[in-house]
Write a protein that binds this DNA or RNA. Structure first.
Length: 276
DNA sequence: CATTTCACCTGGTGGC
DNA sequence: TGCCACCAGGTGAAAT
């Protein structure tokens, strides 16, 4: 599932290849689920504008579009959330169209930007910058948050720390994989109440989370189900996972079997010996 | 308000 | 081989 490192990889890939290109035409599938903004309105707004910048905010891909090709004064933002199985692909316009393709943006270079999503948990939205503020995401960026702000997020929260990490209105971009992996590296059990963490544990968690996210970005993300980047290339960070989907396998640090429990209705993996 | 639960989806898996 | 029940999980709405 695409989380911060996967979304960042995709956004960077699309930026590198699609920046400066004009949208010639737009096609959307008939399914209503992926569209927060009505498809006809979204197509009308996108057509004719140029892609100025593509970046990640939380788990969202933000595409700035405007009349000029340079990254200045965009007039709209196209917001892509990949959900569970979403892909944003940059390909030849003549490439075969995969099943579950929900959006095709024809670009002036003969390429297309395609949104493909089998499970339809993804969402497409439009922000009109002439009357709406620029997209800022639901929470705080985990990669740049400082220790004081990080600790403040969890102060007084009775919920398990794993649940708090998944709460996008606190930190945005962290999902099931990186919540489990960062808790392992910090040596903290997922069911601990967020408010019970000491200052030292919170700081260990922040540093572990940032380290894991940066390492995953460097390896192009984790390909556990069907994640691929904008060019259809798989990531490699799944090879570095210590706990996620390693139920029963030996802990990489101590050798004891990795446990699996449910937290917030999500499969949660941890080492009973290394995490306290 | 904080927190938990559930519905939304379909491909993949495992049992028979 | 084929059929089918079941599960995964990001998010937001509904329930507690």
């Amino acid at each position: 599932m695409p989380e911060l490192p996967e979304v960042e990889t995709i956004a960077n890939g699309v930026h590198a290849r699609a920046r400066g290109q004009q949208v010639l035409s737009v096609w959307f599938s008939r399914y209503p689920q992926p569209f927060l903004t009505r498809p006809a309105r979204m197509a009308r707004a996108l057509t004719g504008l140029s892609i100025q910048q593509v970046r990640r905010i939380g788990k969202h891909i933000v595409v700035d579009l405007g009349a000029g090709k340079n990254p200045s004064s965009p007039s709209i933002q196209w917001i892509v959330h990949l959900g569970m199985t979403g892909r944003l692909l940059y390909c030849e316009a003549t490439a075969p169209v995969a099943t579950h393709t929900h959006a095709r943006l024809e670009l002036d270079s003969g390429h297309e930007l395609r949104f493909v999503d089998a499970r339809r948990f993804g969402r497409l939205d439009l922000i009109d910058l002439s009357c709406e503020p620029s997209f800022s995401g639901p929470g705080t960026e985990p990669l740049t948050i400082d220790s004081v702000a990080f600790a403040a997020l969890f102060h007084g929260r009775r919920t398990p720390i794993k649940s708090a990490l998944l709460n996008q209105s606190l930190l945005h971009g962290v999902g099931n994989i990186y919540a489990d992996e960062s808790l392992f590296h910090a040596g903290i059990r997922p069911l601990r109440h967020a408010s019970s963490l000491t200052r030292a544990e919170l700081e260990r968690l922040r540093l572990s989370l940032q380290k894991v996210l940066r390492a995953a970005i460097a390896l192009g993300g984790s390909s556990v189900s069907d994640y691929v980047d904008a060019n259809g290339i798989r990531g490699f960070f799944q090879l570095e996972h210590c706990v996620y989907l390693r139920t029963g396998k030996p802990c990489r640090l101590c050798g004891s079997p990795i446990q699996r429990i449910l937290v917030a209705a999500r499969g949660t993996h941890y080492c009973n010996k290394c995490q306290k």
